[in-house]
Amino acid sequence: MSPKASLELVCPAGNLPALKIAVDNGADCVYMGFKDNTNARAFAGLNFDPASAREGVRYAHAKGAKVLLALNTFPQSDKWERWQGAVDNAVELGIDAIILADPGLMRYAARTYPNLRLHLSVQGSATNYEAINFYHEHFGVQRAVIPRVLSLAQVEQVVKNTPVEIELFGFGGLCVMVEGRCALSSYATGESPNTCGVCSPAKAVRWQQTPEGLESRLNGVLLDRYGKDENAGYPTLCKGRFEVNNETYYAIEEPTSLNTLEMLPEMIAMGIAAIKIEGRQRSPAYVEQVTKVWRAAIDSAKRAPQSYNVNPAWMAQLNKVAEGQQNTLGAYNRPWK
């Protein structure tokens, strides 16, 4: 089957109920992480212990879905064994592919388990085909997830120049920075996605009601201050309001959610292998809603790409669960470019 015909829907599974709901609602693949900092959503109360991982794999496989394991943080110099052990455990569990960012870990996986399918994580920061082909030539990487910074024309250029399957983010919280290349969180808190699998970690967040309004602080740094009528979002560092030249605004990124439903036919035509939904930290209800809509949209776009239209009901359903309550096409279409 050509990749065009086989565009896969890859859905987030932060826990077993989310995994089951994703599979039941038409995910081709689910991705999950172990309960430690070997993955970039190392949040309390999230992820899989060995028993739930085993049950997740069994459930997904019984229903014909694949399970991908995110091992996409960078092993820290003195704790290599934890990441190496996670690769070993993935193989033992019968995971279909592991999603890696660290070149050293990739080499270990490729040498130790030559038949294990490897995906390059978005945290690997590969934004051009020379980088992607490096991972293919050295470790046999079969799929790469592209950072959310390329335009669709640039993505097409990548697809044309690599044998590696390309997976794109389709929906969810938007990272404005190149994934794997952002240390803002550790600058403020000591913990970053690369080193600890977290961004703007909850334990560093403080909310405080003041005469000026509700304040959110990250390890003491004021990220934002909300008036009575404003919705306060999770204080992710890059989504705060700051002062630049005496002007206060969202200096880096407004809280928006990526939504590329309308680009599906183009993505299919250029041979994108998979669409990824962000949000392992979100609820099973989110996973259910988003999986349903994207399953319907992908099926519709595959069936009749010429007459494909974004169903307004899909948008309404997605808007209900979108972060910041507004959508953007992100870098794929660059209104700011």
């Binding site: 960012a101 070149p103 050293g104 270990y108 085909y129 020379e130 980088a131 490096f134 794997g180």
Partner: peptide, 26 residues
């Protein structure tokens, strides 16, 4: 890593810069 790819393919010695994520001995 695109630069690493080209330099290693050409067998030219290089410096791995601060934006290459070198976090462990492996």
């Amino acid at each position: 890593m695109g630069a690493v790819h080209q330099l290693s393919a050409a067998k030219v010695p290089f410096v791995a810069g601060p934006h290459i994520n070198t976090y462990n001995p492996q």
